[in-house]
Simulated scan of single mutants.
Amino acid sequence: MRAKDGVGRYGERLAARRLTEAGMTVLETNWRCPAGEIDIVARDGDCLVVCEVKTRRSTRAGSAVEAVTPAKVARLRRLVGQWLDAHPGLRPAGVRLDVVAVTLPARGAPLVQHLRGVS
């Protein structure tokens, strides 16, 4: 496994923990289909939350939040439809796109930011 993959997986575990601590239920992680991947699918009350996780070791190449481009958001919107098609028994009252940005400093605790309703 590449170091980058390990950093990403660690960030996803931190993100899932943050979502759970916020009262959400994680339904699935790393859901894949031919069109792409959803990092985390969660439920927040009766709302389905599709969460993109971005993990960075530093901000030299920009922040983790900046890595979520309009094109990425559009792709996530398409993936939500495919996820719902693959789970026909689940019909949420609403769907929300969130971003969890994880920064892993050289020293100290990771910084985890949860941005709700990114569009």
Rank of each mutant, 00 (worst) to 15 (best):
L76D: 08
T103I: 08
R75V: 05
P70G: 04
G23Y: 12
V73R: 13
G117V: 08
A16T: 14
R9I: 05
L19D: 09
V68C: 03
D46Y: 09
A22K: 06
R56P: 06
A16S: 15
A109I: 00
A67L: 05
T25D: 08
A93F: 01
G36H: 04
S63I: 03
V26Y: 07
R56D: 01
W83I: 00
V80Q: 04
T103S: 13
K54S: 05
I38L: 12
R13W: 14
G45D: 11
T55M: 01
G11K: 01
T59S: 11
P92T: 04
T25Q: 09
R116S: 13
S58I: 03
V7Y: 11
V26I: 14
T55K: 02
N30Q: 12
W83F: 13
I38M: 03
V118D: 04
L111G: 03
R13I: 06
P70A: 02
V112W: 11
P34H: 01
E37M: 10
A61C: 06
V49E: 00
S119C: 07
G8V: 12
P92W: 03
D46N: 07
C47M: 07
R17E: 15
H87T: 01
L111N: 02
V49N: 00
A109K: 10
N30P: 00
R107A: 14
T69L: 08
A106E: 15
C33H: 00
G23A: 11
L84W: 01
R17M: 09
A101L: 08
D5G: 05
V80T: 12
G89M: 02
E12I: 09
A93L: 04
G11L: 02
L76I: 15
A35P: 05
R13S: 14
R78E: 13
V41R: 01
R56K: 15
R32Q: 14
D46H: 12
L115G: 00
A61K: 09
L19T: 12
Q113A: 09
L48V: 13
R91M: 13
G62C: 06
V112K: 05
L115C: 04
A61E: 12
K4D: 13
L111E: 14
K54V: 13
R32E: 14
S119Y: 11
G23N: 11
L27P: 01
T69E: 10
G89C: 02
D85K: 03
T59K: 05
G36S: 03
T59E: 13
V41G: 04
S63Y: 10
L97M: 11
G23F: 07
G45I: 13
P88M: 08
E37L: 09
E12R: 07
G45A: 08
D85G: 00
L14S: 09
S119V: 13
G6M: 06
V7L: 15
A93V: 08
D85F: 01
S58N: 14
V112L: 08
A67D: 12
V118P: 05
E21N: 11
R17P: 01
A42M: 05
R77M: 05
R56E: 04
E37V: 07
E37W: 05
G36K: 03
A3K: 08
C47E: 15
E52H: 05
V100P: 08
M1S: 15
R9D: 12
D44E: 15
A67T: 01
Q113S: 10
G62A: 11
L76H: 09
T69W: 09
P88I: 01
V7F: 13
V41Y: 04
